[in-house]
Design a protein around this nucleic acid. Sequence first.
DNA 1: GCATTACTGAACGGTATCGTTTAATTGAAC
DNA 2: GTTCAATTAAACGATACCGTTCAGTAATGC
Lengths: 220, 220
Amino acid sequence: MSTEQIGQGSRPVAKKSPTGRGRPPDSSKREAIVAAAAEAFFVHGFAASSIEQIAADAGVSKVTIYNHFGDKRALFAAAVDCECEKMRGYFSIDTQLSGSSIRERLTAIGEAMVAFLSQPKMVQFDRRIAAETEHEPEIGHAFLKAGPWRMKAAFSAFLAFANERGELKIPDPELAAEQFVSMCKGMGDLERRFGAAPDSTENSRRIAGALEMFLKAYAP
Amino acid sequence: MSTEQIGQGSRPVAKKSPTGRGRPPDSSKREAIVAAAAEAFFVHGFAASSIEQIAADAGVSKVTIYNHFGDKRALFAAAVDCECEKMRGYFSIDTQLSGSSIRERLTAIGEAMVAFLSQPKMVQFDRRIAAETEHEPEIGHAFLKAGPWRMKAAFSAFLAFANERGELKIPDPELAAEQFVSMCKGMGDLERRFGAAPDSTENSRRIAGALEMFLKAYAP
DNA sequence: GCATTACTGAACGGTATCGTTTAATTGAAC
DNA sequence: GTTCAATTAAACGATACCGTTCAGTAATGC
């Protein structure tokens, strides 16, 4: 089980030769395999997905999969790595670092975050990673590092910065970060995970409520 | 897939005879089957659990399982129903309705809730139900009704009551309920689901922080 | 040309599952 | 003791999967 170098990507494929002498590996096939694997694993789960079906969906021979990844578990790990990497770019807090009032910036952050977490793909990914964590704790840990913890660190830094500039008065930025994010999510997170229809009105009320409460507590 | 009468339990086993003439069904066997099924399903998942293994664990013939439940999916539904029913009694907010200060009551509620959600069994159950919701949305919906929504209603009522008594000043009890609960959970919920070691110090800080913020916003 | 590597298609052994069937046994009610 | 339902052990057919092997084809460097 890889899932270690989630932060690096670019794991080497060929043994050593940068320009091998034989037929070059078809990277498009590898991508197709990982894509089909991700689709299958995240929809049907690890145990319920068959390599044979993944191979068919990817338009690839089963042997090719074994040559590339060697193992069903390794293929799953590769799919997780890939999805984590994709996730990396989808959401960043940096764009909200300056401009307009702190009120508007916090609102924008809250809305972007909720929108990000509401994507069906994210919900699906969340469900599957959590389920597989039961057997493969490292997968859950890798996801925490790549996703939530990373985000918390960024948002805490944002709050600490606002604190230094005197826009807010926050004794514990980490705690405050959790509070704001948690209130923005409310039960919405949970409801999505268990299949309830998303309700954007409800989300807006949560974000507005979170903002009000947050400023009431942390305005200078 | 049953999961409809999660609130009723007591689904009939025998066809019609209240006191049949033949050999009476051994209810202990049925319980053993459901227990073994719950264990297997919630640990290994639906697809990765085998009826044969469940039968062995329950000390029961495979045919008996099929006679009782007819189907693997039905057995899973029965296990979910049973677990939901058990959950029912574990956590209740009623015990905190009166006595001591509102501050102490809220703290007790927060602590009880976090302790409840931190149980490994609950984490496991959450993971599994969420995963199976991918294919069986009714299961997720039934769980929401039996668990989180029920709790939210109870806590909202508690807050509305405190509001009427003038202990708090809350314009929107439902929103306030979500806010308090969400802040108490913080990221702890998520971290537990993804296998991070629980940190009771962190939990206490979250609860204290939630209380402070909550009272700052809603104290009369 | 030739060596080397990537890929394919098909098949195989072994294992495991579900759901059903059959024949036999147990246990309570009558 | 007879009757009838619950239960059991064992086996069956069908299906599916994993991971491997093998012979053959495709694409590249020499």
